[in-house]
Design a protein around this nucleic acid. Structure first.
Length: 506
RNA sequence: UCCUCCAUAGCUCAGUUGGUUAGAGCGGUUGACUGUUAAUCAAUAGGUCCCUGGUUCGAGUCCAGGUGGGGGAGCCA
C-alpha cells in the first residue's frame, strides 16, 4: 500500500512505502539522503549502507534528479526536516534512472525555464504556485455557489468584433470569420436576466503583443453578474469576495505560502474595510493635494526613491567587499561559492533597483501632470495603492475612458458607475466592474458615441427591451489574482502552460 | 508600434584601452567523507563567443544590419 507523503505523519514508527521522484540528493560515506517528492509533498529519505543490501545502496547513490523510484522504510519523526518526518529506507526499487536532468537546484533564467516548462512544473516553488492556483479556483466556485450564484458559460467563438479587431485572435468558423472571446460579460448579462445571480469562469484571449510580467495571450476570467444590484452592492460583493479568497488561501495553504516566502502582511490585513475613493479623489492623491492617513503620495514616492538609491549603494558596497574578500585569498571553496552566488544575486537586485531609480522620477512627473479625465496608468495605480495596506476601490469614473455599457452617474452625466479594485503592495488592478446601463435609449446613444456597429448589439439591446432591470457585475483576471496571492514575479508562473507573444510551446 | 537592456560551456555568469592556447561556479562523470538540508573536498570531460557583413596586421571585444530574448510605455485583466 503506497503512502502519500502528505499523510506520512499518520504512519509514525511504522513501515511505509513511498513512490516518487528524486528532488535533490546529498551523499556522505555510507549514507545517501534522497529528497523525494510525490506530488503531495516532499520528504527526506535516508539510505544507510548498514540497513540495505549493497545493490540497493549503489542504486540510491547513482540516482540523479528526477529518477523515479519506490522506497520502503520506517517513518521517523525528525524536527530538522521540513515536514517533520523522514524515511529510514529499507528497500529501493528504481523505476527509471536519470542522470542528466536539465533543471538543477541552482539559478536559471526565465526563458530557459519556460522552454522547459513541462519539467519546471516539478520544482518546489511551481508546486506551491499550482496548488494555490487550484485552491483559488475551488474557493471562487465555493464562494459563489454558497451564495446562490449559478455558473453559466459564455461562448469562446464570437461572431462580431465589438471593440476593434487588433486585440482579437481571428479564426475560421465554417467559412465565416470568428474571433476568440475577449470577455464573456455581455453573455453573463443575458444569463443573469434568466437566472438572477450568475458567474462565468472561462478562458479569454487577447492578441496584444505585450511583453510584460502582467500579460498573457490566454488567461482565465471570472465574471459575476447580478440582477437588481447597484454599484454599492457590487462593491460590497467585490470586497467580500476578495476577503474570502485571501482568507481561504491563508488558512488552507500556509505551507505553500512559506515555500514561496510570501510576506503575510496582506493576509493579516484583509479583515480591514477596503477604502473606497472616487476617481476625482484618486486624481487629487496623484497631484499630492490629498493625503491618506497623513501620508502624501508624492512625498512617499520621493522617499521611496531615496530608499532605492540607498539600496543600490548598499548593495554595490556589499559586492565590492565580497569581491575583495575573494581576491584576498585564503577563503574556503565553499565560502567562495557562497559569496559568488550572493554577488550574482546582488547584481540582479541592483539591476532591478536601477530600473526603479530610472522609473520613479517619470512616475512622479506623470502623477504631477496627470490630466483629469485620463485613465490611471500602471504607475499611477502603484502610487495610490502604496498608501494603503488593503485593496482600494476607485469608483465613479469619467465616462469617456470607460466601456459603453457602464451606467451613467445620475448626479453627473460625465461620470459612469464603474469601479476598479486595486491590490496593495504596488500590485494594481485586479478587478474591474460596474453597474450596467439599463436604459435602452442611453445604451444606444453610448454605442453610437463609441462608434460601435449597432447591428452587432441587437441581441444585447433586447435585454434592455424586455424587462430591463438595474444590474451590476465585475471581472476578475484569475492569473492576476494568483499572482497577487503568491507574489511570484511573473504572471507566466501562475498558469501551467502560459501562452503569450512568442510562446506557443511547450 | 515606441523606448531601453541583453545574447560567451547543459545552466548562471566573468572576460580590462582590440593582442598568444577564452575562464569560474553550478550541473555531468570518477573518487573521498557516517546526519546532509543549494552539503563539502579532490580530479575530469565539456566552446560554431547568436547570424551576416565591415573596420583592422589582428575582433568574444569596435561599427552596421538582422534574429532571438528580458524590462517598460501604450492597451489592459
Amino acid at each position: 500500500m503506497r503512502t502519500e507523503i502528505c499523510h506520512l505523519a499518520d504512519g509514525e514508527g511504522k513501515t511505509a512505502s513511498l513512490a516518487g521522484w528524486v528532488a535533490n540528493k546529498r551523499t556522505g560515506k555510507g549514507l545517501v539522503f534522497l529528497e523525494l517528492r510525490d506530488g503531495s509533498g516532499f520528504c527526506q529519505c535516508v539510505v544507510d549502507e548498514n540497513n540495505v543490501n549493497p545493490e540497493v545502496f549503489e542504486a540510491a547513490k547513482k540516482a540523479g534528479l528526477a529518477t523515479s523510484l519506490r522506497l520502503e522504510g520506517e517513518v521517523v519523526k525528525d524536527d530538522r526536516q521540513v515536514g517533520g518526518y523522514e524515511l529510514q529506507v529499507q528497500k529501493v526499487e528504481v523505476l527509471q534512472f536519470v542522470e542528466d536532468y536539465p533543471i538543477s537546484n541552482k539559478a536559471h533564467g526565465v526563458d530557459f525555464l519556460l522552454e522547459k516548462r513541462h519539467l519546471w512544473l516539478r520544482s518546489k516553488r511551481q508546486w506551491a504556485v499550482m496548488r494555490i492556483r487550484s485552491r483559488t479556483k475551488f474557493a471562487i466556485h465555493q464562494f459563489f455557489q454558497d451564495r446562490g450564484f449559478i455558473q453559466t458559460d459564455s461562448p469562446i467563438f464570437t461572431g462580431n468584433a465589438c471593440e476593434g479587431t487588433t486585440t482579437l485572435f481571428a479564426t475560421d468558423f465554417y467559412g465565416e470569420e470568428a474571433f476568440l472571446s475577449q470577455s464573456g460579460q455581455l453573455y453573463a448579462e443575458a444569463t443573469a436576466m434568466a437566472l438572477g445571480k450568475v458567474y462565468t469562469f472561462g478562458p479569454t484571449f487577447r492578441a496584444e503583443k505585450s511583453k510584460t510580467r502582467r500579460h498573457l495571450s490566454e488567461f482565465w476570467m471570472i465574471e459575476p453578474e447580478m440582477a437588481f444590484y447597484d454599484l454599492d452592492m457590487n462593491m460590497d460583493l467585490i470586497e467580500e469576495f476578495i476577503r474570502y479568497i485571501v482568507t481561504d488561501i491563508y488558512t488552507t495553504h500556509r505551507a505553500e505560502l512559506e515555500v514561496l516566502g510570501r510576506d503575510l502582511t496582506l493576509f493579516e490585513n484583509i479583515g480591514t474595510t477596503f477604502p473606497r475613493i472616487t476617481y476625482d479623489e484618486a486624481v487629487e492623491i496623484l497631484h499630492g493635494k490629498r493625503d491618506v492617513n497623513g501620508e502624501n503620495a508624492l512625498e512617499t514616492l520621493e522617499k521611496d526613491l531615496e530608499a532605492v538609491k540607498q539600496g543600490i549603494a548598499d548593495r554595490k558596497k556589499d559586492i565590492e567587499e565580497r569581491e575583495a574578500a575573494i581576491a584576498a585569498g585564503g577563503m574556503k571553496k565553499g565560502k567562495v561559492n557562497f559569496n559568488r552566488n550572493k554577488i550574482d544575486t546582488l547584481k540582479n537586485e541592483v539591476k532591478d533597483l536601477e530600473e526603479k531609480e530610472r522609473n520613479i522620477p517619470q512616475w512622479l512627473e506623470s502623477a504631477r501632470t496627470f490630466q483629469h479625465g485620463a485613465d490611471l496608468g500602471g504607475s499611477d495605480e502603484t502610487i495610490i495603492t502604496r498608501l494603503f495596506n488593503t485593496p482600494v476601490m476607485v469608483y465613479k469614473w469619467p465616462k469617456d475612458i470607460k466601456a459603453f455599457y457602464m451606467k451613467r452617474d445620475e448626479e453627473d452625466d460625465n461620470y459612469v458607475k464603474g469601479v476598479d479594485c486595486l491590490a496593495p503592495e504596488g500590485f494594481g488592478e485586479i478587478v474591474g466592474g460596474a453597474e450596467r446601463e439599463d436604459s435602452l435609449e442611453l445604451l444606444e446613444q453610448r454605442i453610437k458615441e463609441h462608434d460601435l456597429p449597432m447591428e452587432a448589439f441587437e441581441w444585447y439591446l433586447d435585454l434592455r427591451k424586455y424587462g430591463s432591470v438595474p444590474h451590476a457585475g465585475f471581472g476578475l483576471g484569475f492569473e492576476r489574482m494568483v499572482m497577487w496571492l503568491t507574489n511570484v514575479p511573473h504572471i507566466r508562473e501562475t498558469i501551467p502552460f502560459p501562452r503569450y507573444y512568442g510562446r506557443l510551446f511547450p
